[in-house]
Write a protein that binds this DNA or RNA. Structure first.
Length: 240
DNA sequence: GCGACAG
DNA sequence: ATCTTGTCGC
């Protein structure tokens, strides 16, 4: 699928924050789509211990960084049957900075999304949506670039306050930032840590929660995320 | 200055 | 994210 190039990626962290501040104004939290049939999940992985150095004598100079891998998996929502799976790889040098994760992982994710043939109605990402210091986490950012509904489904908290969540599957409590609800802490399975769900783009929180619950198959994480993670990790470590 | 901090 | 052992619960 195709995506928009709204800004450059080779920027410093200060410029990255400025870009986020500008893009945040474009995020839509209204769910226009009525029927979600195709759902996709994506994830990124890499080997933290090895730094790659790739000499390019010609034009672009020397590239250094780590080899990153991304995968996108597409499912039919009704049956949760997988219809497509792709991977992509590339060198990444932007460091991990809380709040700037999208500048580290988005380029490789977009490379993977460019490969898929199907046209998902909604995309789940292992990250935050609007539950972010500048209101634009990785899921929101990707949603803008792909112009698709996206949901952030993170394993831990980045920002926001919340109360304890009921133990039963489906229980949740609102995640708030200065009295504003930016997401939900959702129990996707009994007796396991809840996940942090926040709408990314072109979707509302209620719909997001429903889709996350619907795509969970007895596991803590939704199936698209879980399987995308398994594949990308295998690819990164080169194991079977 | 101190603590917090998606992956 | 990744490095790690045993251990509790369904």
């Amino acid at each position: 699928m195709k995506y928009q190039k709204l800004h450059p990626w080779n920027v410093d962290y200060k410029r990255a924050a400025e870009i986020q501040g500008r893009l945040e104004k474009s995020i839509v939290l209204i769910c226009a789509a009525k029927n979600f049939k195709i759902i996709a999940g994506a994830d990124v992985s890499y080997l933290p211990t090895r730094t790659i150095r790739e000499g390019k004598r010609s034009s672009t100079g020397t590239k250094k960084g780590k080899m990153f891998y991304a995968s996108v998996m597409v499912f039919e929502l009704k049956t949760m049957e997988r219809v497509e799976a792709v991977t992509a790889s590339g060198i990444v040098d932007f460091p991990y900075i809380p709040g700037l994760l999208s500048f580290r992982e988005s380029p490789i994710l977009l490379k993977a999304f460019a490969k898929i043939k199907s046209n998902p109605d909604v995309i789940i990402l292992d990250a935050q949506g609007i539950a972010h210091p500048r209101g634009i986490g990785l899921a929101s950012h990707i949603g803008l670039l792909l112009d698709k509904p996206t949901i952030g489904c993170a394993k831990t908290r980045l920002i926001g306050d919340y109360n304890e969540v009921g133990e039963e599957m489906g229980c949740y409590s609102p995640l708030t930032v200065q009295d504003k609800v930016v997401g939900a802490v959702l129990r996707t399975r009994k007796n396991v840590k809840p996940v942090f769900v926040s709408p990314g783009h072109k979707i509302d929180l209620k719909t997001s929660i429903g889709l996350i619950l619907k795509s969970c198959r007895g596991c803590r994480l939704p199936e698209p995320i879980r399987q995308a993670h398994n594949l990308v990790k295998k690819t990164a470590t080169g194991k079977e």
